[in-house]
Amino acid sequence: MTVPAFFFYLFSAVAVASAFMVIAGRNPVHSVLWLILTFVNAAGLFLLIGAEFLAMILVVVYVGAVAVLFLFVVMMLDVDFAELREGFLQYLPIGALVGLVFLVELVLVVGTWAVGPGIASAIKAPIPNASQVTNTEAIGRVLYTTYVHYFQIAGLVLLVAMIGAIVLTLHHRVNVKRQNISSQNARTRDTAIEVVKVKTGEGI
């Protein structure tokens, strides 16, 4: 077995196994950690096909930001996950049945695998030769030219997500004391301190 093939099977096997552990784990914190392992292995698969930019982005964005955010949320939410899972086994037979149907269909799909004659020519933006352009540049070349509208629409989707999060969760509380920087800066000795002459032996 060649070295790339060995690593391909290693990364895939670990990715599938840890993805399974994400949903099988009892503790949600462990699930997030398994999820991180899945991402790292997927990054490894990207490296094997020469897409090192995507591999690094996957690690930086998903592991560095998204998964850590997940971890914070999971740790801060006071949800009893054991209780949520109580009905889990009850649905296992039907879930297993659906899974089995999917598996059979997938086997059918893989069994009929055939590469169509016109497919090689139908590809719109083929992967350029890696020795001529870096893959960051290759993505940049199409992302901001041919596919600029996808990029913009995806930006709009994120805008809607941001508006939605603010609309649905932001509460303006009226009785909260807020920092007022201008009034802080405008304080002088006169407004800030009060000189009280205390007579000896009498108090205020």
Partner: peptide, 24 residues
């Protein structure tokens, strides 16, 4: 995966006969 393109025109040109994967 089974037609090699995302454009509807390309899919129409590539999908001449129903294979199991395509129907799926």
């Amino acid at each position: 995966g089974f037609t090699g393109t995302v454009s509807f025109a390309g899919i129409a040109a590539a999908a001449k006969s129903p294979s199991t994967g395509l129907v799926f």
